Computed example of a mutant assay.
Amino acid sequence: MPFTLATWNINSVRLRESLVRDLLTQTGVDVLCLQECKSPVEKIPSFADLGYGHAVARGQKGYNGVAILSKLPLEEVGAHDHVALGHARHVAARLENGVTIHNYYVPAGGDVPDRAQNEKFGQKLDYLTAMRDDFRANRPERAILVGDLNIAPREDDVWSHKQLLKVVSHTPVEVAHLAETQEAGSWIDVTRADIPEGQLYSWWSYRSPDWDAADKGRRLDHVWATPDIANAAHSSRILRHVRGWEKPSDHAPVLATFDL
């Protein structure tokens, strides 16, 4: 049975509950994975009245936080606290068809791409290394990985490859770490498998006075799948217009449909 999945860094689920409701109503996605919920689990709004009666989450007050909302029955299968940061950055759930969904919020890494000068950048690299090691030790099967991975890996995933080479989220060391993580699980980038060519962004900075016209975006949000189910994925898209909603997140939702 086909199901459509979306991933979205919501930048406070309580502040933007109405936007989540609008997205769910307008798209009817079966599963929505949220990052940066910025809420304890018990205070994350319920969307059961819209048909999303199943949910798993990890939360923190005012910081981080991940949640999976679903129309389809699912069971929680754990969460990692990579590098023992004490952050709510991962939760996983399994659908009745045996597909496991991993929802990740990788550390942003601060502003300076140097672990000697910036502890947060070191934490980001170490987090990715821990993800890599986990996938090597526990080879994923029938799995989907989504989330704000905070790295735009390809040259056409950013508005200017040359100008962003020394900017956190597109530096060569981050791209290399993400590539190792992806390779460790044999993950396939579903979005780029569907849309192989051209500029593609899912994030536009709040700092830009006219984000749409300037279009200085980056593709930080990803949908990956293991090889045994990747061929079932199709209809990938990024809902750019959502970035233009009133009081929006700086991220746009990324969607894909799986015939499983």
Rank of each mutant, 00 (worst) to 15 (best):
E17L: 05
L72T: 12
L260H: 07
A55D: 08
R218D: 11
E141T: 13
L95F: 11
E197G: 05
P209I: 00
E246C: 06
K61R: 15
L178A: 07
H251V: 05
G51K: 13
V99S: 08
N97P: 03
C33H: 03
L19Q: 14
V190L: 06
L5Q: 02
I238H: 12
A252T: 12
R218H: 08
Q26W: 07
R218A: 13
V56Q: 10
P172A: 01
R237F: 10
V31A: 00
I151V: 15
H222P: 08
N103S: 11
H251S: 04
N64M: 02
G28D: 07
G185I: 01
M131N: 10
D22K: 15
V223E: 10
L239H: 12
D250S: 04
E246F: 00
G65A: 03
D148V: 08
V29C: 14
K166F: 02
V254H: 04
L220K: 03
H251A: 07
L128V: 11
N150D: 11
R21S: 08
D215A: 14
T27V: 05
A233E: 04
P248Q: 09
T191H: 01
I10G: 00
D194Y: 03
S39H: 04
M1P: 09
D134G: 03
P209W: 03
F135V: 12
L200K: 05
R139T: 13
A232L: 15
L128W: 01
E75G: 13
E174S: 05
R154Y: 05
D114P: 01
T7Q: 00
E180N: 08
R16W: 01
S12M: 07
G109L: 08
P196L: 02
A67F: 06
P196S: 07
